[in-house]
Nucleic acid binder design. Structure first.
Ligand code: MN
Ligand code: MN
Ligand code: ZN
Ligand code: ZN
Lengths: 136, 136
DNA sequence: ATTAAAAATGCAACTTCATTGCACGTTTTA
DNA sequence: TAAAACGTGCAATGAAGTTGCATTTTTAAT
């Protein structure tokens, strides 16, 4: 695993203290995280700085956002080599029980057939249900 | 086409004047509509009443909501016989050009394979691109 | 090293969309 | 025809995201 500092520089993001902490958090997280999650994790940090940290990360292609239907945007690290292009997109899963949102990068989105004249540029697939941790 | 009044009663919604007008609008619309759209269409009507009209329609299974990534919830009539169950769900399409959101009820969502332990209860598929009206 | 420019941060204010409370009017039912 | 249930309208509130600007920190130039 590359050091957080190197990872940031690779994406042309200056490695400030805050950014390194946030990236570290994103790495340790199994589920996607929200701005709120970061606010809780970094109580002393400013909400807006966290907000802009996520925004920068996204603009630089380090993370991607996920709309899981809760109305709260979640974020997760992009896979190594991800360009956030259509072919990089994968299934997202929202667990109704633990309310965690997961990237399933191994599960690509199938090609969707559309009516004549419709051109696909991007596809988002969100599955809701019960996650592996919550089924027993 | 069933009269709007009958349609409402069939879904156990009392056919008030406002509700009949809104249903009529929903029927005439090719694209999904937002609360804002209704506000513009019915300038004299109260915003909250329109809001609650949509809410009631949805709760009674007359319409379904669509999250198209714009942050503005869109609504569209359910198909005849729709129970809003997983098997009723279809593809939604957002056109980046005209910014209209369409139901594609003829295009069902393919079964998605998931990791072991994940149970699917609901699937949402949103395709973004250019719609038939905007490709020429 | 010193200074100027650029970038990041922190605080406050604001926007947008959604939602709730409550009084009042209308419809339904007993 | 009275009581209850329901619908409507106006105001207020909530939640999430976004912007402006002053201050601090970092970087680059002299
Ligand atoms: Mn993802
Ligand atoms: Mn639809
Ligand atoms: Zn779960
Ligand atoms: Zn279009």
């Amino acid at each position: 695993m590359k050091k957080v500092e190197e990872k940031l520089e690779q994406k042309e993001i200056r490695p400030t203290a805050m950014r390194m902490l946030v990236l570290e958090t994103l790495r340790n997280q199994k589920a996607a995280i929200s701005l709120q999650d970061l606010e809780i994790e970094f109580e002393k940090a400013d909400r807006i700085t966290l907000y802009r940290t996520l925004k920068t990360f996204q603009e630089k292609g380090l993370i991607h956002s996920i709309a899981d239907g809760t109305g709260i945007t979640k974020y997760a690290l992009c896979e190594e080599g991800c360009k956030c292009a259509p072919e990089d997109m994968h299934v997202h899963f929202f667990c109704n029980r633990c309310e965690d949102t997961f990237c399933l990068p191994k599960f690509k989105i199938p090609k969707v057939s559309l009516p004549k004249g419709f051109v696909t540029l991007e596809t988002n697939l969100l599955v809701k249900g019960t996650c592996a941790n919550c089924t027993h």
